[in-house]
């Protein structure tokens, strides 16, 4: 039983094809990475899965109810006028959870991303990495069945990226939502995902699908193993082939 499924979907903006035909089925508890060049429709695929957009052709099947889907965007997308706690509590309050409960669950979610003590901070008082953690906490606070991450670390430095990647995997292990992770970075895709989907330049189609070695979350030193390097090479080769064909 899939949590969400795209079946032969196609999306065009102003007559120009952006995505598809494209199919993707998400099983419970897996992490799928979508990699591909800019403009290949990765983010569009994510919005279809979230139900924020409808395809012009094809079908979207969603097992998760609206409140059970969470999205993390490329920028933290926090409300500057709200504290970290209120930002995290927002999805709960919008769906009718009482203020007190929402606050308690928000504090717990902030603690899970290592931000205990910063509940009252405003986004402007946080570093880029911390703001992204608040954004993650906001996504996780509703215990989603479907977690969609749209290049969440693109604006961060390499050290912060790696730390956050491990954090996401650790958090994922707690509740195991089906996760789709959009990224430009092949290494990040192979590190984060159980399955890597390589997309062609827009309108994006699937060029290759590769299962990654080892179970999630990754053992220490996984990035230096030959299996990791080999998978990275395979994904890069598939990407390069797609670029050359376009």
């Amino acid at each position: 039983m899939s949590v969400a499924e795209l079946i032969d979907v196609e999306v065009a903006y102003g007559g120009r094809g952006a995505l598809g035909p494209f199919s993707l089925a998400l099983a419970a508890g897996e992490i799928v990475a979508l990699v591909g060049p800019s403009g290949c429709g990765k983010s569009t695929a994510l919005r279809l899965l979230a139900g924020l957009e409808a395809p012009q052709k094809g079908q979207v099947r969603r097992g998760a109810r609206p409140g059970e889907t969470a999205v993390v965007f490329q920028s933290p997308t926090l409300a500057p006028w709200l504290t970290a706690r209120s930002n995290v509590a927002l999805p709960l309050e919008l769906s009718g959870v009482s203020k007190r409960d929402a606050r308690e669950r928000a504090d717990a979610a902030l603690a899970r991303v290592g931000l205990s003590g910063r509940e009252a901070a405003r986004p402007a008082q946080l570093s880029g990495g911390m703001a992204m953690r608040v954004s993650l906490a906001r996504a996780l606070v509703t215990s989603p069945r479907l977690l969609l991450l749209d290049e969440p670390f693109a604006a961060l430095d390499e050290i912060t990226r790696r730390a956050l990647a491990d954090d996401v995997l650790a958090l994922w292990r707690e509740t195991g939502p089906a996760t789709v992770f959009v990224t430009h970075s092949v290494e990040e895709a192979v590190y984060m995902a159980s399955r890597v989907v390589v997309m062609s330049p827009g309108p994006g189609r699937i060029l290759a699908e590769l299962a990654t070695p080892q179970s999630l979350p990754r053992p220490p030193g996984f990035r230096t193993t030959p299996q990791f390097r080999e998978t990275v090479e395979q994904v890069s080769a598939a990407l390069a082939q797609g670029m050359a064909a376009a």
């Binding site: 139900g51 924020l52 609206p66 999205v71 965007f73 927002l90 999805p91 919008l94 769906s95």
Partner: peptide, 8 residues
């Protein structure tokens, strides 16, 4: 979009 997602 987040407000859409959470059915505001």
């Amino acid at each position: 979009r987040l407000f859409d997602l959470y059915g505001a």
